[in-house]
Design a binder for these strands. Sequence first.
DNA 1: ACAATTAACTAAATCGATTAAGTTTGACTA
DNA 2: TAGTCAAACTTAATCGATTTAGTTAATTGT
Lengths: 337, 337
Amino acid sequence: MVSRKKQITLAEIAKQLGVSTATVSLALQNKPGISEKTRLDVLEMAKRLGYVYNRSAARLRMQRSFTIGLIVPNLLNPFFTELTNSVEERIEAEGLSLLLAKTSEDPHRQQKAVQSMLEYRVDGLLICPAIGTRAADLQILLDARLPFVLYTRSLKGLPADYVGTHNKKGTQIATEFLLKRGHRRIAFIGGLSTSLTRKERFAGFRDALQKAGIPLIDTLNIPCETSIKGGYESIQLALRSQPNPSAVVCYNDIVAFGVILGLWASRIAPGKEFPVIGFDNIADASIWSPPLTTLSAPPGLIGQEAVKLLLKRISSPDSPPEKVILSPTLVVRESCT
Amino acid sequence: MVSRKKQITLAEIAKQLGVSTATVSLALQNKPGISEKTRLDVLEMAKRLGYVYNRSAARLRMQRSFTIGLIVPNLLNPFFTELTNSVEERIEAEGLSLLLAKTSEDPHRQQKAVQSMLEYRVDGLLICPAIGTRAADLQILLDARLPFVLYTRSLKGLPADYVGTHNKKGTQIATEFLLKRGHRRIAFIGGLSTSLTRKERFAGFRDALQKAGIPLIDTLNIPCETSIKGGYESIQLALRSQPNPSAVVCYNDIVAFGVILGLWASRIAPGKEFPVIGFDNIADASIWSPPLTTLSAPPGLIGQEAVKLLLKRISSPDSPPEKVILSPTLVVRESCT
DNA sequence: ACAATTAACTAAATCGATTAAGTTTGACTA
DNA sequence: TAGTCAAACTTAATCGATTTAGTTAATTGT
């Protein structure tokens, strides 16, 4: 072990100045009851000694951590990184810190992450339940009376705040848009068939077709992994099927990107010859080539709303649970002209 | 304020069992000197009362936070999210937690983030200096004797551990590869002209040309923003210039993605008709269309190495600074057949 | 000029876990 | 049977900032 330089504490500053620690503490916090001269003396001495505030001590005493926990399923998916990005920004603007954990869609790891957040006494928690999570798994949060907000994925049976997207409405709008332009053979591509979100998004697609009296073509409903590769392979599959599609509604933007690449590779110009619609409106959507027409329910906004709701929950822990369901709007760009 | 349920502490468990807090603490830590029966009693009572370990208290006492700080410039860039992802994994495997902050390439915000990390008494810090950072800005870390590791971007004049990539060697390999295949008009696309990394990567490109006696063509050296859009626009510019290029070495994978999209849009098949080489080998590179030939220096690996180095630094704070420079290897995929 | 008020500061308890330095108990030894 | 020793526990100090309930000294009002 190395000879640690002695920690500079409030007490050390107080000793140097011949005042009490209370005075030093109040001075540093800019609280009333301290003369201007003393305050300046304290500030200067703190700087001179290289004092660094010890949050662990303050937290213990104040019973607050000034930290918000964020649990995401996945950090390689732009949806969640964009969300993380915006959450970090809001949190930092509030003078709080961000404790990050990811579950890799594993409920077991999620349990460990939740436990860890409780031990850290985070002031609040944002969590997108890993696939396979049961309401009972998160009951511990209610028991511990930890303010938390679910985002993107809800959990029936868990009375909790939630911020999400009106999935069904979104794909409905998109599908109607394509129908109005005369398309009759529209594919729905992407999303794992086990995903609740996919079920909702597909439902909007199906309902729009139904309302228009267009029959659903099974071979044009293609679930796949939520990745560029998934979209790339699925569109090629769709193009080879009979009847083949003249347009695509995608599970989300990532899949749409793959679809676009697949179209290019098949020498079909996405947009001009073949419309593609995504979902989410992640940052890359607008700079893609062609720029992606998509249902705007941007992860950044979801993150912001989630933080907003969480702060509200923290300040009034006993108000009834609130749900914020964002209505996606269709942003028309060149992938659908 | 709500009537908080009384916190369950070690003392509460001790009281219920009629033992001392020391016993409870030792039992929960599985330390020797406690009988098996008592240990089980403690565990059961802890569970029954819903006890949650208070890390703030433990930290204060132990003078360790069991937390590692990670400062990234940007969370929207896959390079950094992949790195964050791998760091999170390593950290969690060590039983530590991850405190995340981003600088948005703003040295001022970086300063605040660093300060925050010090106040949290993180056990160690991984930091990629924001553009414009001076060695003096991070001197505070040395003064505070906080173990830290720089990654991806070094900082001359700061004696510190560093994990990065041999940039020059990478682009040199890539350029030689293209030269060997007969290309004489090779473009170098991407990266901001102010970036040190760009300077290094460009130097490798230039040297390879020089060694082969091929003159550098100024109009084929095109700096641009590190984004899909930047690559997309730059390749179109390059294709219109005289002489126009027959192949491209890109600043990184993101730019290469944009270049590929730009080629598709110009009805040129990337790979088959026009080779494109990226740099970094981010996860998307292998699933792109066409799969990207790139210099593998994956962010996940850099993250892992950085964590490894940091843990080493933590356990021996006074050993001399170490540099880990990863040599990129060319991974040939279809974008360059 | 004396009580009342205010400004400036202090003493000391507090948050909850950890751990060094004891103390007690019982078993085993010589 | 006294002495040794280990096992199983306890006592109490400790980490460092915060904050309540004071105390002191100076200022104001009448």
